[in-house]
Design a protein around this nucleic acid. Structure first.
Length: 595
RNA sequence: GCCCCGUUAGCUCAGCCGGAUAGAGCGCUGGAUUCCUAAUCCAGAGGCCAUAGGUUCAAAUCCUGUACGGGGCACCA
């Protein structure tokens, strides 16, 4: 028996060849003492047409065990290989490849398949299970900037891709609404709010500087009027506090002051700010084509109920009961170094506050409890040092770490005219995602982002993307679609229907065969992209397909006298159009009918 | 110091589940439009796939070392 990968991504013709090879090998060599079980037969598609359509390397793989010349083994196998109407020639070449030549007329099967499956061509009927993709999850302390855009597109495209190959997908945004950063946002909003009535007030340099803070403050003023203004005495006090904001920690004085004079009011401002911020983020994401169906709040992990501890404390207890928690210098530590982390990590600080990490232990535990088959985190690559401790915690409480996959998204360098634009969230010097989308359109931005492997640095040249010129490969792909639509319009105008069942065996030119073969690999491309979490493969596939089409277009005329041939060609175009459409749909990009 | 990621054409990058001559776009040179959209196509020039070893019938692809570049190593989030 020979081990065969019975994956549905293998097209039927290849499957057939593999089956036949398998039988021949069993017939010839099962008595030879060679363990054929370990050998896997794989067919590669040949780049060079002179080598036929497919090739197998099996002879070279088993030759050593047989202590025979691979060429002789290959010859023996090929001599035994049955030739028929579809597989018209088998030959041995090079160091021992067995090349298979397929009848030109058989490539058209894929066109009928596409025509019958339409938008679902490439989709899998398999049920792959449930997957959670957590992505973006940017702190709600400012609008999304161009760096977040990359993770946003990646996550949303991966979500769509996994859906297409058969997963049930949840898309989640984890909202860090619990820590100190939220207080800094609240206090920044408050100061801006006070400034509206008191021009003499300075903004703290340690707060968030962006204009969005002013706009939230304005909304606060509009909705709550004078509610959070100060009396004269407190006004003097705050001026004093604001006058010395030098150390990073000085803003904490401001935060405690706010809490002191406003009491509940400070919480109200905080939740007001959070609310506004999330609205902004959601709307930015939406106009970028990104929509999460789940929003998970960090604060929910810290809610205590009468009968039960908070989820965070619960998670810590779990670690404790497994014996991986200890106290030192007043802090509570997790012994993550027992699980291949560099050092132990603090769960609860000596001041009694939980760390972000402790939330994350609880958060990930929660993800596991929701029983997903795959849990995917899309993180900025600056967090890669963070993974070992999360893994450690999950291992410590007995979770299956293999279920958790983390994809790291490398940084985006924003360039304008080749010059790097410096960015910093706190100082307010950043280009927001919204600004980017307004400049270059959501679609162009999406394609630009996803066109690159995620673990690679991306130089996003604004001036280039703005040009909307031929340099942008998106237009190249879309143009192919539009061109086909245009041909169809012309075709219809001489009152002809698009054929449904033409004779595809007429499509035997080099280009036509090449296109049909490429169309046939589309499902495999999706499957591979999904398996590796590499959606950029779809971009490259679509560019390849568009290239072939444009070349074909310039080479051959479609609307011709010979009606049979014309029908076949139109049918081929129909297949190309459908696959471009399907692929772009996964990327969240429109397929225009005209450009 | 430790840990990730990278190094492929002049530039920006694909390819990396090992396979036969290493690809694309841009740029450069030269061509194609009475004809379905020239946002297109065709041809040409351009490569010791960073480097040194190893594994293999076969290495850009897998393993190890080195150099160079980017990032990360908090009782921050």
């Amino acid at each position: 028996m020979v081990n065969i990968k019975a994956e549905n991504e293998i097209p039927e013709m290849q499957q057939q060849i593999i089956e036949k090879l398998k039988k021949i090998l069993t017939d010839l060599y099962s008595e030879s003492g060679t363990d054929l079980n370990e050998k896997e037969i794989r067919l590669q598609e040949n780049k060079n047409k002179e080598h036929g359509d497919y090739a197998s390397n099996i002879a070279m793989v088993i030759a050593k065990d047989l202590s025979e010349d691979p060429k002789i083994v290959a010859k023996r196998i090929s001599n035994n290989f049955p030739i028929d109407d579809q597989i018209i020639k088998v030959e041995v070449a090079g160091p021992g490849f067995i090349n298979f030549f397929i009848a030109a007329s058989t490539h058209g099967e894929v066109l009928n398949l596409i025509d019958s499956k339409k938008a679902s061509y490439g989709r899998s009927d398999d049920s792959m299970g449930k997957v959670l993709i957590e992505y973006v999850s940017s702190n709600p302390t400012g609008p999304l900037h161009v760096g977040h855009g990359r993770g946003a597109v990646f996550g949303s495209v991966l979500a769509k891709l996994l859906t297409v190959v058969g997963y049930e997908v949840d898309e989640e945004y984890y909202v860090n609404d619990y820590g100190r950063q939220m207080n800094i946002l609240a206090v920044s909003v408050w100061v801006r709010y006070l400034q509206i009535s008191h021009k003499d007030l300075a903004m703290t340099p340690k707060g968030y500087q962006g204009d969005y803070v002013k706009s939230i403050a304005k909304d606060l003023k509009k909705e709550e009027k004078e509610k959070y203004l100060l009396n004269e005495n407190n006004h003097k006090k705050i001026i004093k506090i604001l006058s010395k904001q030098e150390e990073e920690s000085d803003i904490d004085l401001l935060i405690s002051f706010m809490r002191e004079v406003l009491n509940k009011g400070s919480l109200e401002i905080r939740s007001f700010s959070l609310d506004k911020m999330l609205k902004i983020i959601k709307s930015d994401l939406k106009s970028f084509g990104v929509e999460h169906n789940l929003w998970f709040f960090e604060s929910s992990l810290h809610k205590e109920q009468k009968t039960k501890k908070s989820d965070t404390d619960e998670a810590i207890s779990l670690l404790q009961s497994e014996g991986f928690v200890y106290e030192e210098e007043g802090a509570m530590w997790f012994k993550s170094s027992d699980f291949r982390d560099d050092k132990d990590r603090v769960l609860k600080r000596s001041n009694g506050e939980h760390t972000y990490f402790s939330s994350d232990v609880a958060y990930h535990y929660d993800k596991y409890k929701r029983s997903y088959d795959r849990i995917i985190n899309v993180w900025g690559s600056d967090h890669h040092g963070y993974l070992p401790r999360v893994n450690a915690a999950m291992k410590a409480i007995g979770m299956d770490v293999n279920k958790l996959e983390v994809v790291f998204i490398q940084f985006v360098n924003l360039l304008r005219n080749g010059e790097k634009i410096p960015m910093s969230t706190r100082s307010g010097e950043f280009i927001t995602l919204k600004e980017l989308v307004d400049e270059v359109t959501a679609e162009a931005a999406r394609f630009f982002y996803i066109n690159r492997k995620s673990d690679q640095h991306l130089d996003f040249d604004l001036s280039l993307a703005k040009e909307q010129s031929k340099d942008n490969p998106l237009y190249y792909v879309q143009y192919a679609h539009a061109r086909i639509c245009s041909v169809f319009k012309k075709h219809e105008s001489v009152s002809k229907d698009i054929p449904t069942n033409p004779d595809t065996s007429l499509l035997t030119s080099e280009k036509e065969i090449e296109i049909q073969k490429l169309l046939a690999t589309y499902p495999a491309v999706l499957e591979r992209a999904a398996k590796l979490s590499e959606p950029h493969l779809i971009c490259y596939y679509l560019k390849d397909l568009a290239t072939l089409f444009h070349s074909y277009y310039n080479n051959e005329k479609f609307l011709i006298e010979d009606e049979k041939l014309m029908s076949a060609r139109i049918f081929l175009l129909k297949g190309i159009k459908q696959v471009i459409f399907n692929g772009l749909e996964i990327l969240g990009i429109n397929s225009p009918e005209q450009m």
